[in-house]
């Protein structure tokens, strides 16, 4: 039994690390999606549909909020148990102070 718990913890720490990666990537993805309208259509095409543009914008916005909310939950929970998980991380984990 004693051998199994580190395996479980390491896996959790791994997940937490990827969760942080996701949190870092989210604004990049968001910026990409929000800048996408620039590339849509040449300005001279006059059949642009403002209402649809607005709906796209708010859909991206809502998606970002939902993802951020989901990530924040995991990140906040992760921060509390940081000390425990970092002990398992070995040298490639971010170094925190020696408490």
């Amino acid at each position: 039994m004693r051998r199994r718990s580190p395996v479980f913890l390491a896996r959790r720490a791994y997940r937490l690390r990827r969760l942080r990666d996701a949190a870092r990537l989210l604004p990049v993805a968001g910026a990409f999606l929000l800048l996408l309208p620039i590339l849509w259509e040449p300005p001279e095409a006059s059949d642009r549909n403002t209402a649809w543009d607005g709906i796209y914008l708010f859909a991206v916005w809502g998606g970002l909020i939902a993802l951020a909310a989901w990530l924040a939950q995991g990140l906040a929970a992760g921060e509390d148990s940081d000390e425990a998980t970092d002990a398992e991380n070995g040298p490639d984990g971010p170094r925190r102070g020696e408490r």
């Binding site: 949190a23 870092r24 604004p27 910026a31 403002t50 916005w61 970002l64 993802l67 951020a68």
Partner: peptide, 21 residues
């Protein structure tokens, strides 16, 4: 200026969504 008004809110949205940075 149409939808351009939203840019004023979209910048902060990106900053907050990317709070980890």
């Amino acid at each position: 200026s149409g939808l351009e008004f939203a840019t004023i809110y979209l910048g902060p949205t990106l900053v907050f969504v990317g709070w980890w940075w």
